[in-house]
């Protein structure tokens, strides 16, 4: 077991974790933040995407111990003071989700993308989300939602 300190959605947590515990399970089962979902076991689907020190990462491909000292944001921490993040609102407005399972990861990937490229083309958006799979929407409305946020 190792002791780690992580700040998740602005709250600092100290915890004992097994060395092999994946960050996603620490978040889900250790901290009860079940908004981050698990969709595969090969780092392929992006469902578990969170922000680690402000950048998108797949939390299934990090050990909790590797995140010691890091600032993490999950889907639960995106809204501020009860106000949806514009990306969350845009996903709803443009019907960028159906079953919702890929949605937290997709939203986290999209917000990270816009941080790095505030005015992406459609092609930029599609490539910026290339690490995230969705089986319901065909991506059409997801791309629309991200473009809507980018274009203010």
């Amino acid at each position: 077991m190792k002791r780690i300190t992580v700040t998740v959605n602005g709250v600092t947590h100290e915890a004992e974790v097994e060395e092999r515990e994946l960050l996603v399970y620490f978040l889900r089962e250790g901290l009860g933040l079940t908004g981050t979902n698990v969709g595969c076991d090969t780092s392929s689907c992006g469902t578990c995407t969170i922000h680690l020190d402000g950048e998108s990462v797949k939390s299934c491909t990090l050990l909790a111990v590797q995140a010691d000292g890091a600032e993490i944001t999950t889907i639960e921490g995106l809204a501020t003071n009860g106000e949806l993040h514009p990306m969350q609102a845009a996903f709803q407005e443009h019907h960028g989700l159906q079953c919702g399972y890929c949605t937290p990861g997709m939203i986290m990937a999209a917000t990270s993308l816009l941080k790095e490229n505030p005015s992406p083309s459609e092609d930029d958006i599609r490539h910026g989300l290339e690490g995230n799979l969705c089986r319901c929407t065909g991506y059409h409305n997801i791309v629309k939602a991200v473009a809507a946020v980018a274009n203010g």
């Binding site: 998108s56 990462v57 990937a109 690490g131």
Partner: peptide
């Protein structure tokens, strides 16, 4: 290489 999340790590 990979995708943005992979490139971040």
């Amino acid at each position: 290489v990979g995708d943005p999340q992979v490139r971040h790590r």
